[in-house]
């Protein structure tokens, strides 16, 4: 269980989190799965749709934005394989709120942003029984 992400896309995710700081930023990862590895091919950066007062520790991707993501993925011959979001001044581990709202199967890539600077990203998948997240390996592909 792992995701393979081009270095340039990971940098875009970090920049997106830094730009959104001190609020949470979020978006979609488009790609495909082969032999248990998810290959990220494209990103769709989205507005955090939560109300102003909650965006510092919550994010929301509306159904309408997800629809646009599905249509874009279809156009590219890909699928939405995961969601990325940032944790301003918090570690890159899922919160209880993340667990409550997560959907099994998707990869959840979380980036810790400390004092406006992106640190490491980690990826997680929700267990089928929704009880906890399982870490998945992040392979950074520097050749693309």
């Amino acid at each position: 269980m792992s995701i393979n992400i081009p270095a340039k896309l990971l940098i875009e995710i970090h920049t997106s989190g830094e730009t959104a700081y001190p609020e949470e930023g979020a978006g979609l990862m488009l790609g495909y799965e082969q032999n248990g590895v998810r290959y990220i091919q494209s990103l769709l950066k989205l507005e955090n749709a939560r109300e102003d007062s909650a965006r510092y520790n919550r994010y929301l991707i509306t159904a309408e934005d997800m629809l646009q993501g599905e249509l874009e993925a279809d156009r590219l011959g890909l699928s939405i394989v995961g969601i990325f979001h940032s944790h301003p001044d918090h570690p890159n581990i899922p919160s209880e709120n993340d667990r409550e709202w997560a959907i099994p199967w998707y990869s959840y890539l979380i980036t810790s942003i400390q004092a406006g600077q992106a640190l490491e990203s980690k990826s997680w998948r929700l267990a089928d029984d929704r009880s906890h997240f399982i870490p998945e390996k992040v392979i950074i592909n520097s050749n693309i």
Partner: peptide
């Protein structure tokens, strides 16, 4: 069929 996505 489109899921809504949220977290924190």
């Amino acid at each position: 069929i489109i899921p809504s996505i949220a977290g924190g």
